[in-house]
Computed example of a mutant assay.
Amino acid sequence: MRLELGSPPEDGDLYNAFINALYAAGAGKGTIKMYSVAIREFLEFVKKDPRKVTSDDINRWIIELSSKAKDNRSRSVTMRYYVIAVRRFLKWLGINVKPVMPRAKRKEIKALSEEEIQKILASARTLRDKLIIKLLTETGMRANELLNINISDIDFNRKMIRLRVTKNGEERVVFFTDDTLDLMKKYLKIHDGEKLFQMTYPALYKAIRRLGEKVGINGLRPHMLRHSFATNAIRKGIPLPAVQRILGHKDIKTTQIYTHLILDDLEKAYREAFG
């Protein structure tokens, strides 16, 4: 669903008016943060009325961003998202520009095998940590979505969770297994509070990283467990559009990045068979 941002004001602070329009239209927190930073940095660079911006202004800014980036991948991804944000802002103002669109290099996707997931679960000493790993690897939810689950969002009979705080601001439903239901019931007997998990993102990140280090998986992070769910779901035969909906992707092209890992499986099987 494309956000309807209305019309810009005739005068005044156009930057703040645009950000307020994003809030009013229901844009996700991540989107608003990225747009805020990108547009603010661009306006500080160009130092002119945004209604007078040209494609060349944006191209010069891209070169400036490129010189500051720490590595090639982050440079390409950052520039692409920033240009998209600025172009959307200018289009809202009625300014039609066609700057260079930096090509984003494909992000390396790291996913765990089911065997590795079982090792991590075995290394978890608390019900909380076991439940976190089970939910992230069975639902593909994002870390922030996990941390915003209220117990009232869980349907224990149908074994599903309604995610109300999502990246794009749209609610969706994810499902979990009987094993996870049993684990959740045990956890809730010793847990008190409205939220399922009373912890911050840094605490979650550290807990998952420690679990990975126990079994020799360095650099384990929450999003890698999301990748693992997506990859294993496709391997098990869940149709790509269904995986897209479970993950909450707007565009199925985003979900398709996981298919190259499945192609790796096919190639390995072929090489083993034919040498």
Results as ranks from 00 to 15, higher is better:
Ala85Glu: 03
Gly193Met: 02
Val173His: 10
Lys119Phe: 07
Ala104Leu: 00
Arg125Leu: 11
Asp153Phe: 04
Val77Ile: 15
Phe197Glu: 02
Arg226Cys: 02
Ile246Trp: 06
Asn148Gln: 11
Thr231Gly: 05
Ala17Ser: 14
Val174Ser: 01
Glu267Ile: 15
Lys110Thr: 11
Lys110Ala: 07
Lys107Asp: 14
Leu127His: 07
Phe176Met: 05
Ala69Leu: 00
Val77Phe: 09
Tyr205Phe: 15
Pro99Glu: 08
Ser55Asp: 13
Ala111Gly: 01
Ile63Phe: 13
Leu14Ser: 05
Arg271Asp: 13
Ile39His: 06
Asn72Thr: 15
Ile217Glu: 07
Ala233Met: 06
His223Cys: 10
Lys214Met: 08
Lys236Ile: 03
Thr126Leu: 02
Glu10Val: 12
Arg210Ser: 15
Ile154Asp: 08
Gly248Val: 03
Arg221Lys: 13
Ala207Cys: 11
Arg210Asn: 15
Arg60Ser: 12
Lys167Met: 08
Ala38Asn: 09
Ile117His: 04
Val100Met: 13
Ile154His: 06
Lys110Glu: 13
Ile63Lys: 15
Gly94Tyr: 05
Lys107Ser: 15
Gln256Thr: 14
Gln244Pro: 11
Val83His: 08
Leu266His: 07
Phe197His: 00
Leu147Ile: 04
Ala85Tyr: 03
Lys48Thr: 04
Leu181His: 12
Gly216Gln: 10
Ser7Cys: 07
Arg87Met: 10
Leu43Val: 07
Asn218Gly: 07
Val243Asn: 04
Thr78Ser: 10
His191Trp: 12
Pro102Thr: 09
Ser67Glu: 15
Ala111Gln: 03
Leu147Tyr: 07
Ser228Gln: 00
Ile132Ser: 04
Ile133Cys: 06
Glu194Met: 01
Ala122Ser: 15
Arg221Ser: 13
Leu136Arg: 05
Gly275Asn: 13
Val215Cys: 09
Lys105Trp: 10
Arg125Lys: 15
Asp57Met: 04
Arg60Asn: 13
Lys253Arg: 15
Ala85Cys: 09
Leu204Arg: 00
Gly216Glu: 11
Leu263Tyr: 12
Leu146Pro: 00
Ala242Pro: 00
Glu64Leu: 11
Glu171Ser: 14
Arg245Trp: 00
Ile19Ala: 08
Thr259Val: 07
Ala27Leu: 06
Arg125His: 12
Ala85Trp: 01
Glu116His: 04
Met79Asn: 12
Ser123Gln: 01
Asp153Pro: 01
His249Cys: 10
